[in-house]
Design a binder for these strands. Sequence first.
DNA 1: GCGGATCTTGACGCTGTCTTAACGGGCGCG
DNA 2: CGCGCCCGTTAAGACAGCGTCAAGATCCGC
Lengths: 223, 223
Amino acid sequence: MTAVLVVDDDPHLLRALRITLQAHGYAVTTAVDGTSALLAATQNPLSLIILDLGLPDIDGTSVLKELRGFSSVPVLVLSARHGSEDKVEALDAGADDYITKPFGLDELLARLRALRRRSVEPDESLVVTEAFTIDLGKHRVTRDGEDIRLTPTEWKILEELVRNPEKLITQQQLLARVWGPAYAKETNYLRVYMAQLRRKLEPDTANPRHLLTEAGIGYRFMP
Amino acid sequence: MTAVLVVDDDPHLLRALRITLQAHGYAVTTAVDGTSALLAATQNPLSLIILDLGLPDIDGTSVLKELRGFSSVPVLVLSARHGSEDKVEALDAGADDYITKPFGLDELLARLRALRRRSVEPDESLVVTEAFTIDLGKHRVTRDGEDIRLTPTEWKILEELVRNPEKLITQQQLLARVWGPAYAKETNYLRVYMAQLRRKLEPDTANPRHLLTEAGIGYRFMP
DNA sequence: GCGGATCTTGACGCTGTCTTAACGGGCGCG
DNA sequence: CGCGCCCGTTAAGACAGCGTCAAGATCCGC
C-alpha cells in the first residue's frame, strides 16, 4: 500500500483529494498547516507527500526545507502560482514535482504514479570496487569488512562522485554541492580532500584507480 | 504508527472520528459501506478496524465474517443496539470489542489502546547483542535477564536506532522523530541522552560498541 | 500538595575536523 | 630551456562538535 500525506488548507480540496486517492488505493493522511504536516511526517512512515505551498502558518518552501532535514520522501508541490521562479524555488528546496492549480485529477494521479516509480528505495545501493565497498544507504565505507572512517566532508565528496559513476564532475559542481555555491573558487579544498580520500581508499595513492583527476576540469569515480 | 480503518455511513461521525484519531497519532483510512471496507482491508496493512454494524449495503456481521476469512486484524464494533444477543453475535463473528452509541471519545481511545496492546505484532522482533537484549514488541531492555530501566525519551531514541541496524541516523532525523520537527537544532539533547543510554547499556562507556557516534552527522546502532 | 523521576539548560575540557598557506613536481608552451 | 599552471602533499592553528557534569525546571503519581 502507498501511504500519502496531503497538506492543504482548503477543506474542500482536501476532501476531494482524500476521496479520489482512497478510491485509487492510497492510504491518506491529511494536514491543514505546515506545523502539523511536519509532525505527521515524523510520526507516519510515508511514501509520498502532496504539499500545497499556500499554507496559513509557515511558508510552504520553508516546510519543504525543514522536511528535507530529516526525510527524503518524494514531494509533489501544489501551487496557484505559475511563475517559473516559484517552480525553481520549490524544486531547489527539495520538491520532486510541481503542479499548478487548477489541475486535473487524472494528471495528479499520473504524476503520483511516476513519482512512486521513480523513488525506488536506494536501500540496496551498494557500490563495490576491488579495493573498497560503499554502502550509500547505511552511509558506510568498508575494506575487507573493516570500517573506513570518513569525515563528513570526505563523505559528501565521495557520495557526489559515486552517485554519478564514470561521470565527470567539475570542480565547480563539487564545490557548490559540498560547500555551497559561494565556494566555487576554493579549488584548494578539493586538492586537500581528494588527497585525503585517496590515502584512505586507494591502495596505491600514486596511481589511483577509482578516484581520477581530469586536469583543469574536475574529478571522476570509476567503479 | 498505527493504521486504523474506520467504517461508518454517517459522515459526521466519520469526520469526528478522523479528527480525533489523527490528533492522537493514528493514520486514518475511512470507508462508508461494507464493500469498500473489505476492499480497503485487503489493500492496506491495518493495525485496527473500527466497524459500525449498521451499513447501507451489507450487514455488519457479514462483513466481519468475510473479513475474518483473510485477516486477523483487531476489530472494534460500533453499534446502536444494546441487546446482549447483538453483542454475542458480533463477538462470535470475530469482533474483539463492542461499544454502543453514543459513546465517549475517551472510552473509544482507551479501548483502542487496549486492543493495540493485546494484538501481538509478529514483526516486533528481539534484537540481541552481547551486552543487552532489546524486545521491541514488549518494550523492554534486559541484561543477563535483569531489566534495564529506560525513561520514555531514552527508549524512543534507542528504538529509532535499533529499528535501522547499522544505518546512520542523522541528528535531524532523531530530533524530528523523538522531539518533533521544531527541535531540529537542539543537538544538545542528543548529547545528553546518548551519554545516558551508553551509561545504561554499554559495559565500557568510553568505548561504545553498539551506540556509535558519527561526528558531525548522527548516530548508528551496531548489533 | 508533595516528592521523586524526568527533562531541559548551560558550562567546561578535549578530540578531531576544517581551513589556510607553503612547497615541490609534472606538463605544456613559448 | 625556463616559465607558468595545476595538481598533490604536508603541517599547523582555528574552530566546531562531542562527552560529561550538575543544577534548575517540569512533570507525574500518590
